[in-house]
Design a protein around this nucleic acid. Structure first.
Length: 260
DNA sequence: ATGTCTAGTGAGACTAGA
């Protein structure tokens, strides 16, 4: 089972690009972030015509996440627990039937957190604390559980072409990186890190300042696997070439193959 | 080299968010 994650930066603006990628890569499960659409306006039909079931959790204007699956959903949960006041659509979780066992997939769009001197940064940190608690609880189920998405965290200096440019940024602040490490230390395997030398491996290149042409990227989209998922991991990849397509997202898809 | 993109509002020489 191939499970992919991609921050598509607007489903309506990216529709042709996303459909082309789905036809090319044929993931069994695709987790999208920044759909920038309310549920009612999400263009479901072209995805359904490719054979996908589809669950969305959107909001007006920005944010929004979705999970597509060729296999049926057994369970779907929206919202990250821990703050009933939080109206931002950043988390959706689904259980999907595997060949031998169910696969639980959490699709997340972690807050950016900039500028750090505003309320956005403490919101990011609180959101990470909520994610930690939720992950801890779900790990107790001892299922194949994946937490994938746009983490908006550069884990290590080698995950940026120019780490010095990110000092002080919410994506690279010690508080953000510490929380990401704490999440990993619950027992997750970070799929790309575990299987590659990650230096020079990026998932995001800014639209500005010729970042793509200069390979000025960062690695902020991550695939976290529970021990039960890591045990059946068959392969991992980053579809870097997609960043060079017409009308690209600023992120590229990352994926993991499981024997499930 | 701060050199961009998307959605929303309402019609911008806009704004917010990233």
């Amino acid at each position: 089972m191939k499970i992919a994650s991609w921050n598509i930066n607007g489903v309506k603006a990216r529709l042709e690009t996303v459909l082309k990628w789905l036809e090319e890569e044929q993931p069994d499960v695709a987790c999208f972030q920044e759909i920038k659409s309310v549920d009612e306006n999400f263009p479901r039909t072209p995805f359904e015509e490719l054979g996908y079931n589809l669950e969305t959790h959107g909001q007006k204007g920005f944010n929004g996440v979705a999970i597509l699956s060729k296999r049926p959903f057994e369970e779907v949960n929206r919202r990250l627990p821990g703050d009933e006041e939080d109206e931002q659509a950043r988390y959706i979780e689904a259980v999907i039937a595997g060949d031998n066992e169910p696969i639980r997939v959490g699709c997340l769009y972690l807050p950016n957190g900039n500028p750090v001197e505003t309320e956005k940064f403490p919101y990011k940190l609180r959101w990470m604390d909520r994610l930690h608690k939720h992950a801890e609880k779900q790990l107790e189920k001892e299922e194949a559980f994946l937490l994938v998405g746009d983490y908006n965290v550069i884990p290590e200096p080698e995950d940026a072409k120019k780490p010095e440019a990110w000092v002080g940024d919410a994506l690279f602040r010690p508080e953000s990186r510490q929380r990401f490490r704490a999440l990993l230390n619950l027992g997750f395997t970070e799929a790309v890190r575990a299987t590659n030398s990650t230096a020079g491996t990026y998932t995001f290149w800014d639209y500005q300042a010729g970042a793509w042409q200069r390979d000025n990227g960062i690695r902020i989209d991550h695939l976290l696997l529970s021990p039960e998922a890591a045990r059946i991991m068959q392969g991992v990849g980053i579809d870097k070439h997609v960043r060079g397509w017409e009308k690209p997202s600023d992120h590229v898809p990352v994926w993991v193959e499981l024997s499930a």
